[in-house]
Design a protein around this nucleic acid. Structure first.
Lengths: 366, 366
DNA sequence: GTGAAAGCGCTAACAG
DNA sequence: CTGTTAGCGCTTTCAC
């Protein structure tokens, strides 16, 4: 079933079939259109995306590299990305790197080989590892980064500030010190969060609490929890760098017979839906995942457009999510800009921090 | 950067470049090969996947339709599918339907339009809704189905048996009745699980327990939990149709001040990693997700192969996971076969059922 | 062992 | 408003 068959059946040229199928670029008489549409339906014709991609040079595919699809933060990112991309007519090729730089590099290469029109990378590598990759010609944005990344457009939150506020909240509850559970790979994020935690602690005149470095997973959080709270005189408050780790910490606390928030107050970073289903519910510093994903998609798509349009008055209005202040980019240099969109994380108070002791401990009164 | 450029630079024909890049189908002199490879590297040449797909008629893309990527069961499926597909040289286009038949239909159409070489569908629709779709020519397997589906290859577990064994385990603990939390859409799965639950109950001579029909989500489980356990004389045991719902039930029990397993014993279906991070850990009827995903991929790939090969002696050995008994399919009719691979679910005893009371209640002794 | 060339299905000039 | 046609980059048959 090809375009030519449809053309033959409807007694028109293949060009007209194109015009009808694509709604342009030339007008078609209503009667002719009907005839073509009829043939399309009757013949069950489906346009060939590969041929179109070859001809137009655009696959309408966006590649996404995630470190770990099981982590709800990234799962929610994937979901939002797919959704926004779909609204703009793009399909999404999601790959998992299992936080392994080698796998990540392979995935990026694969996506490039498939001529994706753009890439969204949640990378576990440093920016310097990215330069050798064959992606100079592909619109790329780094998502979930924590600082400016030279040579790349990037989107993320202010990890220092977010951590600072989360830790400060814990301190305001009067804890003598606050422990930290954090990732073990060396990167901006780890460093920034650690600095945020340290700054909040010291600004309050408190001694540095204990720190546990484990991978960003439930298992990592579980190990961290046992290490931190398994000894004598365990800390009474802990800040977790991710919901995922916090869930592991909760399990460790449960196994150790420690109650949240009575014995240990917990605050975590991310604020995915999973944080609403721990018992008690987690107080979190929430990342605006959907907004970040929307920004990522719109930037990638924007970067992929030819730079020669004088006006495109209404295109911007299609985006549902307003980019953060400072998101305006210079169209002429966009493709290679180092521009960063920084979103802010909000503190959401729920039960695990101890703000509502009477409610949080209900289960114990039964 | 095209094949022609490389050919020109290496002073060979484009055909030779092809032979080198694809390792065939014709032999190339070692010296020539080196020259070509050098040109490829120097020029940074990347083959154009669209052109290749157009020429060969194969995109090496497999489309996947999931009802809900956030549900860990489907997230784990997506992960396994991507992994196995990658090993066979296929990339995966994952789409979400949010359990909405309309969205699902749209996604299937989109995938078909992109000329995927095969499809794996975790559908929320009945088989009859599938017939109108333009996918007769695309190798398709239904994953996570619960009964034979006429006209489709399908893979799933025996939901009746799995539920039966989970419920029976609860009954063996001596509970006077067992409640059921189950999905609300009408389909084989819901019906089979309900029958399994009923059969186990009645075979034990027990009265039918209460039933709560809610969507397959944490929120659904949460509502079900409140409905089931919020009144006077709540049941003392409950079987949840999914880990996801069980997590919601746990939250409801926590909010109601009911302890697991002391006040309420819980067993759930799925056995994803999430079930190891509830407090206490869930006793589950575990679906062999990785094996099911591997089966799905290998069947789709197999179906996509031309039917005219007389022998392919070693291909089968490449698969890591052996299909269940009865998985041998008739190669000549595979594409349109109704064949079903039924995996079996195992009961995994952990803490939520009450088998280890001394351990499960540790948190209360603190 | 290598080259020439046809053509996959589509789009978009260009011509009418 | 509609038709003709030249490729997009690749694979592969056929000739040498």
């Amino acid at each position: 079933m090809t375009r030519a068959d449809v053309a033959r059946y409807a007694s028109v040229s293949t060009a007209v079939v194109s015009y009808v199928v694509n709604g342009g670029p030339r007008p078609v008489a209503a009667a002719t259109r009907e005839r073509v549409l009829g043939a399309v339906r009757l013949l069950g014709y489906r346009p060939n995306a590969s041929a179109r991609a070859l001809r137009t040079g655009a696959t309408k595919l966006i590649g996404v590299v995630l470190p770990e699809i099981a982590n709800p933060l990234f799962a929610e990112m994937a979901l939002s990305i797919e959704q926004y991309a779909g609204e703009l007519g793009f399909a999404v090729l999601v790959t998992n790197s299992a936080s392994d730089p080698t796998v990540e590099r392979r995935n990026i290469r694969n996506l490039a080989a498939r001529q994706v029109d753009g890439m969204i990378l949640v990378t576990v590598m440093g920016p310097s590892d990215l330069v050798g990759l064959p992606i100079a010609d592909i619109p790329t944005v780094l998502l979930n980064t924590f600082e400016e990344t030279p040579g790349f457009a990037s989107i993320g939150i202010d990890a220092f500030d977010g951590t600072y506020r989360g830790v400060r909240h814990l301190i305001e509850h009067g804890h003598p010190s606050v422990a930290l559970v954090i990732g073990r790979h060396s990167g901006d994020d780890v460093e920034l969060r650690e600095r945020g935690w340290l700054a909040a602690t010291r600004d309050a005149g408190l001694p540095d609490g204990p720190i546990a470095r484990e991978e960003f997973s439930r298992a990592g959080g579980h190990r961290a929890g046992h290490r931190l709270f398994g000894g004598l005189n365990p800390p009474t408050a802990v800040f977790c760098s991710s919901d995922w780790q916090a869930i592991g910490v909760f399990r460790a606390l449960y196994e150790l017979g420690l109650r949240v928030p009575e014995d240990v107050a917990v605050v975590s970073f991310d604020g995915t839906e999973a944080s609403e289903y721990t018992n008690p519910q987690l107080t979190v510093v929430r990342q605006p995942v959907a907004a970040m994903a929307a920004d990522a998609i719109s930037r990638v798509v924007e970067m992929g457009k030819p730079n020669d349009r004088p006006h495109r008055p209404d295109v911007g209005g299609a985006f549902k999510v307003a980019p953060s202040p400072g998101a305006q980019a210079d169209a002429t240099t966009l493709t290679t800009s180092t521009h960063r969109i920084a979103h802010t994380a909000d503190l959401i108070i729920r039960r695990s921090c101890g703000c509502h002791p009477e409610l949080a401990s209900r289960s114990l009164q039964a």
